Lab assay of single mutants.
Amino acid sequence: YETDHQDYCEVCQQGGEIILCDTCPRAYHMVCLDPDMEKAPEGKWSCPHCEKE
């Protein structure tokens, strides 16, 4: 199925295993987040940009 999420990391602009924000189209590698994540979040997750809003 098609999503509106970007298929690359917002921080480093590379693809790969990325996690998707449930609020906006941004996507991130877990290691590119500050602080980085050990494992993928369970349930709904909002990226740092959305958390600030």
Rank of each mutant, 00 (worst) to 15 (best):
M37T: 04
E10C: 05
T23D: 10
T3W: 07
P41S: 10
L33R: 05
E10I: 15
A27P: 05
M37R: 12
K39G: 11
I18D: 10
K44W: 13
E17C: 04
E17F: 06
E2F: 15
H5T: 15
T23I: 05
Y1V: 15
M37W: 13
T23Q: 08
E53C: 05
P41F: 12
G43S: 09
R26V: 06
E38N: 06
D4Y: 11
C32W: 00
D22M: 02
H29C: 12
L20E: 11
R26Q: 12
G43T: 05
P25A: 05
C50E: 03
D4A: 09
I19V: 07
C24V: 00
Q6H: 03
A40D: 12
M37Y: 04
C32K: 01
K52W: 04
P25V: 05
H5Q: 08
E38V: 10
H49I: 08
K44C: 07
Y8T: 15
E51R: 05
R26I: 11
D22V: 10
C9H: 01
M37D: 03
E53Q: 04
P25H: 02
I19N: 09
T23R: 03
E10Y: 14
G43H: 02
Y8R: 14
K44G: 14
M37K: 05
D4S: 08
H5G: 14
H49F: 09
L33K: 08
E17K: 07
V11Q: 05
Y8D: 05
Q14P: 01
Q13V: 11
C32D: 02
T23S: 12
C32F: 00
C21Y: 01
C9A: 00
E17W: 03
D4R: 10
P41K: 11
L33Q: 08
G15Q: 10
Q13C: 10
I18N: 04
C24E: 01
C50D: 07
T23Y: 04
E38R: 10
L20M: 11
E17A: 07
H5W: 05
C21G: 01
A27Y: 13
C47P: 01
C9G: 01
L20N: 09
Y28S: 05
V11T: 14
D22Q: 13
S46L: 07
V11E: 15
L33H: 04
C9S: 01
S46D: 07
V31L: 15
Q14T: 05
W45Y: 06
P35A: 11
G16M: 09
S46M: 06
Y1L: 04
C47E: 04
I18Y: 05
D7K: 09
P25N: 14
P25D: 04
P41W: 03
W45E: 13
Q6W: 03
D4E: 13
V11M: 15
D4P: 05
Q6R: 07
E51G: 14
H29Q: 01
Y28P: 01
V11G: 14
H5I: 13
W45G: 12
P41Q: 08
Q13S: 11
M37I: 11
H5F: 10
D34R: 07
D36H: 14
E38F: 14
H49A: 04
V31A: 14
K44M: 10
G15T: 11
A27W: 05
D34T: 10
E2G: 13
D22I: 12
H49L: 06
C9Q: 01
A27T: 09
L20S: 11
I19L: 07
L33D: 00
Q14Y: 04
A27M: 09
Q13H: 08
P41R: 14
C12N: 02
I19P: 00
K39F: 02
C24D: 02
Q6L: 05
M30K: 14
K52M: 03
D7L: 06
Q14V: 09
Q14E: 15
G43A: 13
P25K: 04
Y8L: 12
A27C: 11
D34Y: 08
V31P: 11
P35C: 09
L33G: 06
H49E: 05
E42I: 05
D34W: 11
K44T: 15
M30H: 03
P41L: 09
E42D: 06
V11H: 14
C24W: 00
Y28D: 02
C50G: 03
H29N: 02
T3K: 15
V11D: 15
T3L: 14
K52L: 09
L20H: 14
R26K: 10
C47I: 00
Y1N: 10
R26H: 05
P35G: 12
C21L: 00
P35Y: 15
H29G: 01
Y28M: 12
E38P: 07
C24P: 02
C24K: 02
Y1D: 00
M30T: 13
R26M: 14
L33C: 12
P25E: 14
Q14D: 12
E51A: 11
L33M: 09
T3G: 14
C21W: 01
D34L: 11
S46C: 12
A40M: 12
Q13K: 02
L33I: 04
L33V: 10
D36P: 08
D22N: 08
A27F: 07
T23P: 00
Y28V: 10
E38Q: 06
G16V: 04
I19F: 03
H29R: 02
E17T: 10
Q6G: 03
S46A: 07
C21S: 00
P48H: 10
I19R: 12
G43D: 07
D4F: 10
C47H: 02
C9D: 01
Q14R: 14
K52A: 05
L20W: 07
L33E: 02
S46P: 05
C21H: 01
D4C: 13
D4M: 15
Y8A: 10
G15F: 07
C12Y: 00
E10D: 08
Y28A: 07
M37Q: 08
D34G: 12
G43F: 03
G16D: 15
W45D: 04
L33Y: 11
C21T: 02
D4N: 08
C24R: 01
E38W: 04
T3V: 13
V31K: 12
D4Q: 13
P48S: 12
T23H: 15
T3H: 03
I19K: 14
E51I: 04
C32S: 00
H29P: 00
T23A: 03
I19Q: 08
I18R: 10
G43C: 06
L33N: 02
V31R: 10
G16H: 08
I19A: 13
C9Y: 00
H29D: 04
C50F: 02
C24F: 00
Y28F: 11
E2C: 15
P48G: 09
V31G: 11
E51F: 03
D4I: 09
D7N: 06
C12K: 01
C32T: 00
C24L: 00
T23M: 04
Y28Q: 03
V31D: 11
V31W: 05
E38D: 09
Y1S: 13
M30I: 11
D34N: 09
H29K: 00
L33F: 12
H29Y: 01
E10V: 06
K39T: 06
E10W: 12
G15W: 06
D7C: 00
E53N: 02
C12G: 01
K52G: 06
Q14S: 05
A27H: 04
Q14M: 12
H5E: 07
C12P: 01
C12H: 00
Y8H: 15
R26Y: 03
E51L: 04
G16K: 12
H29W: 00
T23G: 06
R26P: 03
C12Q: 02
E10K: 10
H49G: 09
I19D: 07
C50P: 01
S46R: 08
E51K: 05
E17L: 04
E17V: 09
P25L: 10
